[in-house]
């Protein structure tokens, strides 16, 4: 897309050389410089974080990935419980938001009349604009009590045979954090999947319908297979957002650096330990360790984003990928 577009708008700076004008090299040069600045910024982010985390990488390094004991006072910096909490909460978010988001996207793109689809899509996308601290306060005072009094007791009663739903429940914990994250990433899944479904060529569907398929069969056989890699991309982007969310999660997860099998248990994520401990970390090692967690988060989100955007790009072109 980018190539074809630049081909239709050729650079015409040299069409009429103006010997008097220094404007072109200066102004056009500064545009180019601005573009370089964007790249430099990404490089600077990466380099700064790695340099600042270096004392930790050098001394603790990979051993910190093998321990779940986070006890800065005795210089024990095991980050496993943060990684575990991050994975569990993000996984809950995807399991919930994935099907709902894809279902909503299918409806908006394929089934609902435009008149209805547009305002509903607008509502879902406004959900994406809600600041995370607002999700946090809502999660703490509205969602957590509902989880404690309704959802978690019900889960324990019906699914209590699974270790995931055993033990104490507090309303605050990994499950609540995961549900809150699901709400936060839902617009990402919906909006991108919708773009992808709309990018699927028309003719295939019409052929299916002409052959006597029901609408649902048409969707599952002509639309979803074509859109599969794009949808995976949408889910990976949502995963990226869930991994890095700090404030809302901190407010509802219980902030306990421990690995528990039960989803009701409190946990800790990489982003929320930064929100809690970064301003108070004492000593070079501790600060460097936290920055190390920050750079892991940064690198992880980079990898996920690159991967996801390549997938989305492969289906929907640049439009879907730019979210």
């Amino acid at each position: 897309m980018s190539l074809s577009a630049s081909a239709t708008t050729p650079v015409t700076a040299r069409r009429r050389p103006q010997l008097t004008g220094l404007g072109d090299p200066i102004i056009l040069g500064s545009f180019t410089l601005a573009a370089w600045l964007v790249l430099l910024l990404v490089a600077a982010l990466f380099i700064t974080l790695v340099i600042a985390a270096w004392p930790a990488i050098k001394t603790v390094g990979l051993t910190s990935l093998q321990s779940a004991t986070w006890d800065p006072n005795s210089n024990k910096f095991g980050v496993l419980s943060f990684i575990y909490g991050t994975i569990v909460t993000s996984a809950i978010a995807l399991v919930l938001a994935g099907p709902i988001g894809i279902g909503a996207a299918l409806l908006l793109a394929e089934v609902a009349p435009k008149r209805l689809a547009t305002p509903v899509a607008l509502l879902i996308e406004l959900l994406a604009a809600v600041p995370s601290v607002v999700f946090g306060i809502w999660g703490l005072y509205v969602l957590a009590p509902v989880m404690r009094t309704v959802v978690e007791p019900a889960l324990q009663r019906w699914l209590g045979f699974l270790p995931l739903f055993q033990g104490m429940y507090y309303g605050i914990g990994m499950l609540t954090a995961g549900v809150l994250l699901a709400i936060m990433v839902l617009p990402t899944v919906t909006a991108i999947s919708r773009d992808i479904f709309e990018a699927v060529p028309r003719d295939q569907r019409e052929a299916m319908l002409a052959l006597g398929s029901t609408k649902w069969e048409m969707l599952t056989r002509a639309v979803i297979p074509y859109a599969r890699s794009g949808i995976i991309g949408a889910l990976v982007l949502a995963l990226g957002r869930a991994l890095g969310e700090a404030m809302a999660v901190t407010m509802v997860i219980g902030n306990k650096p421990a690995i528990a099998l039960s989803l009701f248990a409190p946990g800790y994520t990489m982003a929320s330990v930064l929100a809690n401990e970064f301003t108070e970390a004492t000593g070079q090692q501790y600060v460097a360790m936290l920055i190390g967690i920050g750079s892991m988060l940064f690198i992880l989100s980079m990898i996920l984003n690159v991967f996801a955007r390549l997938l989305v790009l492969s289906v929907a072109g640049a439009r879907g990928a730019r979210r």
Partner: peptide, 20 residues
């Protein structure tokens, strides 16, 4: 590259940018 990395930059956790 600029296009791609500015897209990627939108996905960087804001807390990591705070540390930066």
């Amino acid at each position: 590259a600029v296009r791609f990395f500015s897209d990627v930059l939108t996905g960087v956790p804001s807390i990591a940018i705070g540390i930066f």
